[in-house]
Design a binder for these strands. Structure first.
Lengths: 244, 244
DNA sequence: GAGTGGTCTAGACCACTTT
DNA sequence: AAGTGGTCTAGACCACTCT
Protein backbone atom coordinates (compact mmCIF):
# COMPACT_ATOMS: atom_id res chain seq x y z
CA UNK A 1 0.00 0.00 0.00
CA UNK A 2 1.32 3.42 -0.90
CA UNK A 3 1.22 5.04 2.54
CA UNK A 4 3.38 2.28 3.92
CA UNK A 5 6.65 4.18 4.00
CA UNK A 6 5.40 7.56 5.11
CA UNK A 7 4.10 6.63 8.52
CA UNK A 8 5.02 3.28 9.90
CA UNK A 9 1.67 2.06 11.13
CA UNK A 10 0.38 -1.43 10.66
CA UNK A 11 -1.08 -1.93 7.23
CA UNK A 12 -4.40 -3.25 8.46
CA UNK A 13 -4.74 -0.29 10.82
CA UNK A 14 -4.15 2.11 7.95
CA UNK A 15 -6.82 0.31 5.96
CA UNK A 16 -9.16 0.33 8.94
CA UNK A 17 -8.78 4.05 9.49
CA UNK A 18 -9.18 4.80 5.81
CA UNK A 19 -12.37 2.77 5.60
CA UNK A 20 -13.83 4.20 8.79
CA UNK A 21 -13.14 7.70 7.52
CA UNK A 22 -14.89 7.04 4.25
CA UNK A 23 -17.79 5.44 6.08
CA UNK A 24 -18.42 8.32 8.44
CA UNK A 25 -17.78 10.85 5.70
CA UNK A 26 -20.62 9.10 3.90
CA UNK A 27 -18.45 8.05 0.99
CA UNK A 28 -20.41 4.84 0.43
CA UNK A 29 -23.69 6.33 1.58
CA UNK A 30 -25.40 5.90 -1.76
CA UNK A 31 -25.84 2.17 -1.29
CA UNK A 32 -24.78 1.99 2.35
CA UNK A 33 -22.47 -0.75 1.19
CA UNK A 34 -18.75 -1.22 0.89
CA UNK A 35 -17.22 -2.10 -2.48
CA UNK A 36 -16.41 -5.79 -2.84
CA UNK A 37 -13.38 -7.20 -1.09
CA UNK A 38 -11.47 -7.87 -4.30
CA UNK A 39 -12.13 -4.36 -5.52
CA UNK A 40 -10.91 -2.85 -2.26
CA UNK A 41 -7.84 -5.10 -2.36
CA UNK A 42 -6.97 -3.84 -5.82
CA UNK A 43 -7.69 -0.24 -4.97
CA UNK A 44 -5.65 -0.26 -1.76
CA UNK A 45 -3.00 -2.67 -2.99
CA UNK A 46 -3.25 -5.02 -0.03
CA UNK A 47 -3.86 -8.72 0.24
CA UNK A 48 -7.31 -10.01 0.96
CA UNK A 49 -6.30 -11.20 4.46
CA UNK A 50 -5.09 -7.75 5.39
CA UNK A 51 -8.25 -6.15 4.10
CA UNK A 52 -10.37 -8.69 5.91
CA UNK A 53 -8.48 -8.05 9.13
CA UNK A 54 -9.45 -4.39 8.91
CA UNK A 55 -13.04 -5.09 7.94
CA UNK A 56 -13.37 -7.71 10.67
CA UNK A 57 -12.35 -5.20 13.31
CA UNK A 58 -14.94 -2.72 12.06
CA UNK A 59 -17.52 -5.47 11.96
CA UNK A 60 -16.76 -6.45 15.53
CA UNK A 61 -17.52 -2.95 16.68
CA UNK A 62 -20.78 -3.18 14.85
CA UNK A 63 -20.16 -0.60 12.13
CA UNK A 64 -20.32 -3.14 9.35
CA UNK A 65 -22.19 -6.35 8.73
CA UNK A 66 -20.97 -8.83 6.16
CA UNK A 67 -23.30 -11.14 4.32
CA UNK A 68 -21.94 -14.02 2.38
CA UNK A 69 -22.91 -13.83 -1.25
CA UNK A 70 -24.30 -10.35 -0.91
CA UNK A 71 -21.78 -7.83 0.25
CA UNK A 72 -20.77 -5.71 3.19
CA UNK A 73 -23.41 -3.44 4.64
CA UNK A 74 -22.82 -0.28 6.61
CA UNK A 75 -24.86 -0.26 9.81
CA UNK A 76 -25.99 3.34 10.20
CA UNK A 77 -27.86 2.36 13.34
CA UNK A 78 -24.62 1.49 15.08
CA UNK A 79 -22.59 4.25 13.42
CA UNK A 80 -24.98 6.72 14.97
CA UNK A 81 -24.74 5.24 18.47
CA UNK A 82 -23.56 7.83 20.93
CA UNK A 83 -22.08 7.58 24.39
CA UNK A 84 -21.00 3.99 23.89
CA UNK A 85 -20.20 2.67 27.31
CA UNK A 86 -18.63 -0.52 25.98
CA UNK A 87 -15.81 1.38 24.32
CA UNK A 88 -13.12 3.26 26.19
CA UNK A 89 -13.35 6.87 25.23
CA UNK A 90 -12.45 10.21 26.71
CA UNK A 91 -15.33 12.26 28.00
CA UNK A 92 -14.37 15.27 25.95
CA UNK A 93 -14.69 13.19 22.80
CA UNK A 94 -17.89 11.56 24.02
CA UNK A 95 -19.54 14.86 24.76
CA UNK A 96 -18.24 16.38 21.57
CA UNK A 97 -19.76 13.53 19.57
CA UNK A 98 -23.09 14.34 21.16
CA UNK A 99 -22.87 17.89 19.87
CA UNK A 100 -22.04 19.55 23.15
CA UNK A 101 -19.16 21.85 23.90
CA UNK A 102 -17.24 19.94 26.55
CA UNK A 103 -15.38 21.49 29.44
CA UNK A 104 -14.04 20.23 32.71
CA UNK A 105 -14.10 21.52 36.25
CA UNK A 106 -11.29 20.35 38.51
CA UNK A 107 -12.81 19.79 41.94
CA UNK A 108 -10.03 18.31 44.08
CA UNK A 109 -7.08 15.99 44.29
CA UNK A 110 -5.86 14.30 47.42
CA UNK A 111 -3.82 11.40 48.65
CA UNK A 112 -5.71 8.86 50.69
CA UNK A 113 -5.46 5.22 51.70
CA UNK A 114 -6.99 2.75 49.26
CA UNK A 115 -9.31 1.24 51.85
CA UNK A 116 -10.68 -2.25 51.66
CA UNK A 117 -13.02 -1.66 48.72
CA UNK A 118 -10.43 -0.37 46.28
CA UNK A 119 -7.40 -2.24 47.61
CA UNK A 120 -8.43 -5.68 46.42
CA UNK A 121 -9.18 -4.94 42.77
CA UNK A 122 -6.01 -2.85 42.56
CA UNK A 123 -3.90 -5.61 44.15
CA UNK A 124 -2.87 -3.29 46.97
CA UNK A 125 -3.05 -3.31 50.73
CA UNK A 126 -5.82 -1.21 52.32
CA UNK A 127 -3.38 1.36 53.70
CA UNK A 128 -1.47 1.78 50.46
CA UNK A 129 -1.84 5.29 49.16
CA UNK A 130 -3.91 6.45 46.22
CA UNK A 131 -4.07 9.80 44.49
CA UNK A 132 -7.73 10.56 43.94
CA UNK A 133 -8.71 13.21 41.42
CA UNK A 134 -12.27 14.46 41.30
CA UNK A 135 -13.61 16.28 38.28
CA UNK A 136 -16.89 17.45 36.86
CA UNK A 137 -17.39 17.31 33.12
CA UNK A 138 -19.71 19.87 31.64
CA UNK A 139 -21.69 19.77 28.43
CA UNK A 140 -22.51 23.28 27.25
CA UNK A 141 -21.73 24.35 30.82
CA UNK A 142 -24.28 21.97 32.30
CA UNK A 143 -23.02 19.24 34.63
CA UNK A 144 -22.87 15.93 32.77
CA UNK A 145 -20.43 13.55 34.46
CA UNK A 146 -19.00 13.56 37.96
CA UNK A 147 -16.01 11.32 38.41
CA UNK A 148 -13.26 10.36 40.81
CA UNK A 149 -10.22 8.59 39.41
CA UNK A 150 -7.77 6.96 41.79
CA UNK A 151 -4.23 6.01 40.88
CA UNK A 152 -1.80 4.13 43.14
CA UNK A 153 0.69 6.70 44.38
CA UNK A 154 3.46 4.19 43.84
CA UNK A 155 2.91 4.43 40.09
CA UNK A 156 3.22 8.20 39.92
CA UNK A 157 6.48 9.80 38.94
CA UNK A 158 8.03 12.17 41.44
CA UNK A 159 7.25 15.24 39.41
CA UNK A 160 4.76 15.85 36.66
CA UNK A 161 3.18 18.90 35.02
CA UNK A 162 0.46 20.29 37.28
CA UNK A 163 -1.99 20.69 34.44
CA UNK A 164 -2.19 16.93 33.95
CA UNK A 165 -4.57 16.91 36.91
CA UNK A 166 -7.02 18.93 34.86
CA UNK A 167 -7.04 16.62 31.87
CA UNK A 168 -8.72 13.27 31.41
CA UNK A 169 -7.34 10.36 33.40
CA UNK A 170 -5.85 8.62 30.38
CA UNK A 171 -3.64 11.61 29.71
CA UNK A 172 -2.67 11.74 33.37
CA UNK A 173 -1.72 8.07 33.44
CA UNK A 174 0.32 8.43 30.31
CA UNK A 175 2.04 11.64 31.34
CA UNK A 176 2.56 11.05 35.04
CA UNK A 177 2.81 7.26 35.20
CA UNK A 178 3.79 6.17 31.71
CA UNK A 179 0.84 3.83 31.81
CA UNK A 180 -1.74 3.00 29.20
CA UNK A 181 -5.20 1.70 30.01
CA UNK A 182 -6.13 -0.99 27.54
CA UNK A 183 -9.42 -2.05 29.09
CA UNK A 184 -11.67 -1.50 32.07
CA UNK A 185 -14.04 -3.76 33.93
CA UNK A 186 -17.01 -1.69 35.03
CA UNK A 187 -19.84 -2.51 37.42
CA UNK A 188 -23.06 -0.57 37.10
CA UNK A 189 -25.47 0.41 39.82
CA UNK A 190 -28.24 2.86 40.50
CA UNK A 191 -28.31 5.26 43.42
CA UNK A 192 -29.85 8.47 44.61
CA UNK A 193 -27.94 11.63 43.78
CA UNK A 194 -27.56 12.52 47.47
CA UNK A 195 -24.36 14.45 48.16
CA UNK A 196 -23.64 14.69 44.46
CA UNK A 197 -26.88 16.49 43.66
CA UNK A 198 -25.33 19.93 44.21
CA UNK A 199 -22.46 19.35 41.81
CA UNK A 200 -24.77 17.76 39.28
CA UNK A 201 -27.43 20.41 39.62
CA UNK A 202 -30.25 17.98 40.30
CA UNK A 203 -32.46 16.98 43.22
CA UNK A 204 -30.92 14.82 45.97
CA UNK A 205 -33.69 12.24 45.53
CA UNK A 206 -33.17 11.81 41.82
CA UNK A 207 -31.93 8.36 40.74
CA UNK A 208 -28.69 8.24 38.79
CA UNK A 209 -26.47 5.65 37.19
CA UNK A 210 -23.11 5.00 38.77
CA UNK A 211 -20.21 3.04 37.39
CA UNK A 212 -17.27 1.65 39.33
CA UNK A 213 -14.45 0.50 37.16
CA UNK A 214 -10.95 -0.88 37.36
CA UNK A 215 -8.60 -0.04 34.52
CA UNK A 216 -5.86 -2.41 33.41
CA UNK A 217 -2.72 -1.83 31.38
CA UNK A 218 -1.79 -4.05 28.44
CA UNK A 219 0.03 -6.42 30.79
CA UNK A 220 -3.17 -6.97 32.74
CA UNK A 221 -2.07 -5.09 35.86
CA UNK A 222 -4.63 -2.79 37.46
CA UNK A 223 -3.56 0.84 37.26
CA UNK A 224 -6.62 2.88 38.17
CA UNK A 225 -9.91 2.82 39.97
CA UNK A 226 -12.73 4.93 38.72
CA UNK A 227 -16.09 5.99 40.07
CA UNK A 228 -18.40 8.05 37.92
CA UNK A 229 -22.01 9.09 37.77
CA UNK A 230 -24.03 10.49 34.90
CA UNK A 231 -26.46 13.36 35.07
CA UNK A 232 -29.79 12.20 33.72
CA UNK A 233 -30.92 13.64 30.44
CA UNK A 234 -27.60 14.74 29.03
CA UNK A 235 -25.83 11.50 28.37
CA UNK A 236 -27.53 8.12 28.18
CA UNK A 237 -24.96 5.35 28.31
CA UNK A 238 -25.50 2.86 25.49
CA UNK A 239 -24.02 -0.59 25.07
CA UNK A 240 -23.71 -2.77 22.03
CA UNK A 241 -24.57 -6.23 23.30
CA UNK A 242 -23.08 -8.68 20.86
CA UNK A 243 -23.42 -12.37 20.52
CA UNK A 244 -20.19 -14.29 20.37
CA UNK B 1 -8.36 -31.52 12.60
CA UNK B 2 -9.84 -34.85 13.54
CA UNK B 3 -13.31 -33.73 14.62
CA UNK B 4 -13.85 -32.19 11.21
CA UNK B 5 -16.00 -34.95 9.75
CA UNK B 6 -18.08 -35.78 12.80
CA UNK B 7 -19.87 -32.51 13.25
CA UNK B 8 -19.67 -29.99 10.48
CA UNK B 9 -18.84 -26.85 12.40
CA UNK B 10 -16.31 -24.30 11.31
CA UNK B 11 -12.82 -25.34 12.20
CA UNK B 12 -11.93 -22.16 14.02
CA UNK B 13 -15.11 -22.42 16.08
CA UNK B 14 -14.22 -25.95 17.09
CA UNK B 15 -10.79 -24.75 18.12
CA UNK B 16 -12.30 -21.83 19.98
CA UNK B 17 -14.68 -23.99 21.95
CA UNK B 18 -11.99 -26.49 22.73
CA UNK B 19 -9.65 -23.80 24.03
CA UNK B 20 -12.35 -22.05 26.05
CA UNK B 21 -13.30 -25.36 27.62
CA UNK B 22 -9.74 -26.09 28.61
CA UNK B 23 -9.33 -22.57 29.95
CA UNK B 24 -12.37 -22.62 32.21
CA UNK B 25 -11.65 -26.21 33.24
CA UNK B 26 -8.35 -24.85 34.46
CA UNK B 27 -6.31 -27.00 32.11
CA UNK B 28 -3.61 -24.39 31.71
CA UNK B 29 -4.04 -23.03 35.21
CA UNK B 30 -0.53 -23.97 36.30
CA UNK B 31 1.05 -21.11 34.38
CA UNK B 32 -2.15 -19.30 33.43
CA UNK B 33 -0.73 -19.38 29.93
CA UNK B 34 -1.64 -21.09 26.69
CA UNK B 35 0.90 -23.32 24.96
CA UNK B 36 2.68 -21.62 22.07
CA UNK B 37 0.86 -21.14 18.80
CA UNK B 38 3.02 -23.59 16.89
CA UNK B 39 2.54 -26.23 19.56
CA UNK B 40 -1.23 -25.79 19.50
CA UNK B 41 -1.19 -25.93 15.69
CA UNK B 42 0.64 -29.23 15.78
CA UNK B 43 -1.51 -30.64 18.54
CA UNK B 44 -4.80 -29.67 16.89
CA UNK B 45 -3.64 -30.19 13.32
CA UNK B 46 -4.74 -26.78 12.07
CA UNK B 47 -2.92 -23.99 10.31
CA UNK B 48 -1.64 -21.06 12.26
CA UNK B 49 -4.19 -18.67 10.73
CA UNK B 50 -7.06 -20.86 11.85
CA UNK B 51 -5.65 -21.14 15.34
CA UNK B 52 -5.07 -17.41 15.49
CA UNK B 53 -8.63 -16.75 14.35
CA UNK B 54 -9.88 -18.73 17.34
CA UNK B 55 -7.45 -17.14 19.78
CA UNK B 56 -8.24 -13.66 18.44
CA UNK B 57 -11.92 -14.11 19.14
CA UNK B 58 -11.17 -15.19 22.70
CA UNK B 59 -8.81 -12.27 23.09
CA UNK B 60 -11.45 -9.84 21.88
CA UNK B 61 -13.79 -10.97 24.59
CA UNK B 62 -11.02 -10.39 27.06
CA UNK B 63 -10.33 -13.94 28.14
CA UNK B 64 -6.83 -13.95 26.72
CA UNK B 65 -4.08 -11.42 26.28
CA UNK B 66 -1.31 -12.01 23.80
CA UNK B 67 2.13 -10.54 24.27
CA UNK B 68 4.56 -10.57 21.44
CA UNK B 69 7.71 -12.41 22.34
CA UNK B 70 6.26 -13.74 25.57
CA UNK B 71 3.19 -15.83 25.08
CA UNK B 72 -0.55 -15.87 25.56
CA UNK B 73 -1.81 -15.14 29.03
CA UNK B 74 -5.13 -16.21 30.47
CA UNK B 75 -6.92 -13.28 32.09
CA UNK B 76 -8.55 -14.78 35.17
CA UNK B 77 -9.91 -11.36 36.07
CA UNK B 78 -12.05 -11.33 32.94
CA UNK B 79 -12.81 -15.06 32.98
CA UNK B 80 -14.36 -14.52 36.39
CA UNK B 81 -16.52 -11.59 35.28
CA UNK B 82 -20.15 -12.36 35.88
CA UNK B 83 -23.33 -10.84 34.51
CA UNK B 84 -21.58 -9.37 31.49
CA UNK B 85 -23.96 -6.86 30.04
CA UNK B 86 -21.92 -6.37 26.88
CA UNK B 87 -22.51 -9.94 25.77
CA UNK B 88 -25.88 -11.31 24.73
CA UNK B 89 -26.77 -14.09 27.09
CA UNK B 90 -29.88 -15.76 28.38
CA UNK B 91 -30.86 -14.90 31.90
CA UNK B 92 -31.03 -18.52 32.93
CA UNK B 93 -27.39 -18.93 31.96
CA UNK B 94 -26.44 -15.62 33.52
CA UNK B 95 -28.03 -16.48 36.84
CA UNK B 96 -26.68 -20.00 36.70
CA UNK B 97 -23.16 -18.64 36.22
CA UNK B 98 -23.62 -16.61 39.37
CA UNK B 99 -24.36 -19.76 41.32
CA UNK B 100 -28.09 -19.25 41.65
CA UNK B 101 -30.83 -21.64 40.73
CA UNK B 102 -32.71 -19.76 38.03
CA UNK B 103 -36.44 -19.92 37.47
CA UNK B 104 -38.93 -17.79 35.63
CA UNK B 105 -42.37 -16.46 36.45
CA UNK B 106 -44.60 -15.70 33.50
CA UNK B 107 -46.54 -12.55 34.36
CA UNK B 108 -48.51 -11.67 31.25
CA UNK B 109 -48.65 -11.48 27.48
CA UNK B 110 -50.76 -9.11 25.49
CA UNK B 111 -51.08 -7.49 22.13
CA UNK B 112 -50.79 -3.74 22.10
CA UNK B 113 -49.94 -0.93 19.72
CA UNK B 114 -46.25 -0.09 19.46
CA UNK B 115 -46.77 3.55 20.40
CA UNK B 116 -44.45 6.32 19.41
CA UNK B 117 -41.55 5.32 21.64
CA UNK B 118 -41.16 1.79 20.35
CA UNK B 119 -42.40 2.31 16.79
CA UNK B 120 -39.42 4.28 15.55
CA UNK B 121 -36.58 1.99 16.60
CA UNK B 122 -38.56 -1.01 15.33
CA UNK B 123 -39.24 0.69 11.99
CA UNK B 124 -42.99 0.42 12.55
CA UNK B 125 -45.94 2.80 12.69
CA UNK B 126 -47.23 3.74 16.16
CA UNK B 127 -50.43 1.75 15.74
CA UNK B 128 -48.74 -1.39 14.47
CA UNK B 129 -49.26 -4.24 16.88
CA UNK B 130 -46.71 -5.76 19.23
CA UNK B 131 -46.91 -8.86 21.37
CA UNK B 132 -45.52 -7.91 24.76
CA UNK B 133 -44.42 -10.64 27.14
CA UNK B 134 -43.65 -9.79 30.72
CA UNK B 135 -41.63 -12.12 32.91
CA UNK B 136 -39.89 -12.14 36.22
CA UNK B 137 -36.66 -14.08 36.55
CA UNK B 138 -35.87 -15.48 39.96
CA UNK B 139 -32.55 -16.41 41.49
CA UNK B 140 -33.00 -18.97 44.25
CA UNK B 141 -36.65 -17.86 44.25
CA UNK B 142 -35.76 -14.23 44.88
CA UNK B 143 -36.78 -11.68 42.20
CA UNK B 144 -33.74 -10.75 40.11
CA UNK B 145 -34.83 -9.40 36.72
CA UNK B 146 -38.14 -8.00 35.57
CA UNK B 147 -38.49 -7.74 31.83
CA UNK B 148 -40.93 -7.02 29.06
CA UNK B 149 -40.05 -8.18 25.57
CA UNK B 150 -42.05 -6.90 22.63
CA UNK B 151 -42.13 -8.54 19.23
CA UNK B 152 -43.90 -7.14 16.16
CA UNK B 153 -47.03 -9.24 15.71
CA UNK B 154 -46.38 -9.30 11.98
CA UNK B 155 -43.31 -11.43 12.57
CA UNK B 156 -45.08 -14.09 14.60
CA UNK B 157 -46.24 -17.27 12.95
CA UNK B 158 -49.93 -18.03 13.14
CA UNK B 159 -49.50 -20.85 15.60
CA UNK B 160 -46.70 -21.70 17.96
CA UNK B 161 -46.31 -23.85 21.06
CA UNK B 162 -47.81 -22.09 24.05
CA UNK B 163 -44.83 -22.84 26.26
CA UNK B 164 -42.57 -20.63 24.16
CA UNK B 165 -44.08 -17.71 26.05
CA UNK B 166 -42.53 -19.03 29.23
CA UNK B 167 -39.01 -19.37 27.87
CA UNK B 168 -36.43 -16.70 27.19
CA UNK B 169 -37.13 -14.29 24.37
CA UNK B 170 -34.42 -15.70 22.13
CA UNK B 171 -36.11 -19.09 22.14
CA UNK B 172 -39.45 -17.44 21.45
CA UNK B 173 -38.08 -15.53 18.48
CA UNK B 174 -36.49 -18.62 17.08
CA UNK B 175 -39.48 -20.89 17.62
CA UNK B 176 -42.32 -18.51 16.83
CA UNK B 177 -40.74 -16.12 14.35
CA UNK B 178 -37.75 -18.01 12.94
CA UNK B 179 -35.66 -15.03 13.89
CA UNK B 180 -32.24 -14.81 15.47
CA UNK B 181 -31.03 -11.83 17.46
CA UNK B 182 -27.44 -11.17 16.60
CA UNK B 183 -26.98 -7.98 18.57
CA UNK B 184 -28.82 -5.46 20.71
CA UNK B 185 -28.36 -1.75 21.24
CA UNK B 186 -29.17 -0.98 24.85
CA UNK B 187 -29.67 2.35 26.63
CA UNK B 188 -29.19 2.46 30.36
CA UNK B 189 -30.98 4.62 32.86
CA UNK B 190 -31.72 4.79 36.55
CA UNK B 191 -35.17 5.06 38.03
CA UNK B 192 -37.09 4.45 41.21
CA UNK B 193 -38.65 1.02 41.58
CA UNK B 194 -42.16 2.50 41.79
CA UNK B 195 -44.80 0.12 40.40
CA UNK B 196 -42.21 -2.59 39.96
CA UNK B 197 -41.27 -2.66 43.63
CA UNK B 198 -43.91 -5.26 44.46
CA UNK B 199 -42.77 -7.72 41.81
CA UNK B 200 -39.13 -7.11 42.72
CA UNK B 201 -39.74 -7.32 46.43
CA UNK B 202 -38.09 -4.01 47.23
CA UNK B 203 -39.14 -0.56 48.41
CA UNK B 204 -40.86 1.74 45.87
CA UNK B 205 -38.28 4.44 46.54
CA UNK B 206 -35.30 2.24 45.86
CA UNK B 207 -33.21 3.21 42.80
CA UNK B 208 -32.76 0.53 40.14
CA UNK B 209 -31.02 0.18 36.80
CA UNK B 210 -33.20 -0.08 33.73
CA UNK B 211 -32.19 -1.05 30.23
CA UNK B 212 -34.14 -0.40 27.05
CA UNK B 213 -32.85 -2.33 24.11
CA UNK B 214 -33.60 -3.01 20.48
CA UNK B 215 -32.57 -6.39 19.11
CA UNK B 216 -31.55 -6.87 15.49
CA UNK B 217 -31.32 -9.99 13.35
CA UNK B 218 -28.23 -10.76 11.26
CA UNK B 219 -29.65 -8.72 8.40
CA UNK B 220 -29.76 -5.65 10.61
CA UNK B 221 -33.55 -5.52 10.86
CA UNK B 222 -35.01 -4.78 14.29
CA UNK B 223 -36.98 -7.74 15.60
CA UNK B 224 -37.58 -7.01 19.27
CA UNK B 225 -37.83 -4.31 21.87
CA UNK B 226 -36.83 -5.05 25.39
CA UNK B 227 -37.22 -3.31 28.71
CA UNK B 228 -35.67 -4.79 31.79
CA UNK B 229 -34.76 -3.81 35.31
CA UNK B 230 -32.41 -5.45 37.76
CA UNK B 231 -33.07 -6.02 41.43
CA UNK B 232 -30.23 -4.46 43.40
CA UNK B 233 -27.91 -6.82 45.20
CA UNK B 234 -28.48 -9.96 43.19
CA UNK B 235 -27.03 -9.14 39.84
CA UNK B 236 -24.65 -6.28 39.17
CA UNK B 237 -24.33 -5.67 35.44
CA UNK B 238 -20.69 -5.53 34.39
CA UNK B 239 -19.22 -4.28 31.15
CA UNK B 240 -15.85 -4.88 29.59
CA UNK B 241 -14.88 -1.49 28.21
CA UNK B 242 -12.31 -2.12 25.54
CA UNK B 243 -10.10 0.19 23.62
CA UNK B 244 -10.16 -0.30 19.90
C1' DG C 1 -23.51 -19.02 -13.84
C1' DA C 2 -21.30 -15.12 -12.03
C1' DG C 3 -20.14 -12.84 -8.15
C1' DT C 4 -20.11 -12.23 -3.24
C1' DG C 5 -18.06 -13.10 1.37
C1' DG C 6 -16.13 -17.33 4.41
C1' DT C 7 -12.62 -20.72 5.39
C1' DC C 8 -8.25 -22.66 5.38
C1' DT C 9 -3.51 -23.45 4.11
C1' DA C 10 1.65 -22.83 3.75
C1' DG C 11 5.12 -19.98 4.09
C1' DA C 12 7.97 -15.75 4.60
C1' DC C 13 9.44 -12.22 7.33
C1' DC C 14 9.18 -8.90 11.35
C1' DA C 15 9.16 -7.24 16.37
C1' DC C 16 9.60 -8.32 20.72
C1' DT C 17 11.18 -10.84 25.08
C1' DT C 18 13.97 -13.83 27.30
C1' DT C 19 18.29 -16.39 28.17
C1' DA D 1 20.57 -16.70 19.79
C1' DA D 2 16.30 -18.83 20.33
C1' DG D 3 11.67 -18.54 20.79
C1' DT D 4 7.44 -15.97 21.10
C1' DG D 5 3.46 -13.65 18.91
C1' DG D 6 2.39 -10.09 14.79
C1' DT D 7 1.97 -9.07 9.92
C1' DC D 8 1.32 -9.99 5.29
C1' DT D 9 0.99 -12.55 1.06
C1' DA D 10 -0.90 -15.67 -2.67
C1' DG D 11 -3.81 -18.97 -3.67
C1' DA D 12 -7.32 -22.69 -3.36
C1' DC D 13 -11.75 -23.95 -2.43
C1' DC D 14 -16.45 -23.46 -0.27
C1' DA D 15 -21.25 -21.46 0.72
C1' DC D 16 -24.29 -18.35 -0.28
C1' DT D 17 -27.22 -14.86 -3.10
C1' DC D 18 -28.41 -13.07 -6.79
C1' DT D 19 -30.30 -12.82 -11.87
Amino acid sequence: MMIKSVEHTLLHLQVRRLLLNEIVRGEFAAADMLPTETELCNRLKVSRSTLRQAVTSLEQEGYLRRRQGMGTIIDREVCNMTARFDLNSEFSILLGDLGYTPSVLFLKAKEEPAGSERARPLHLKPDDSLLSITKLWLADNRPAIWCTDSVPTALIRRSFPEDLLHKDIFSFLEGACQQVVSYQIASLSARLAGDLSQDLGIEPGEPIIASSAVGYNPRGSPVMYNFEVYAPGILTPTVLRAKI
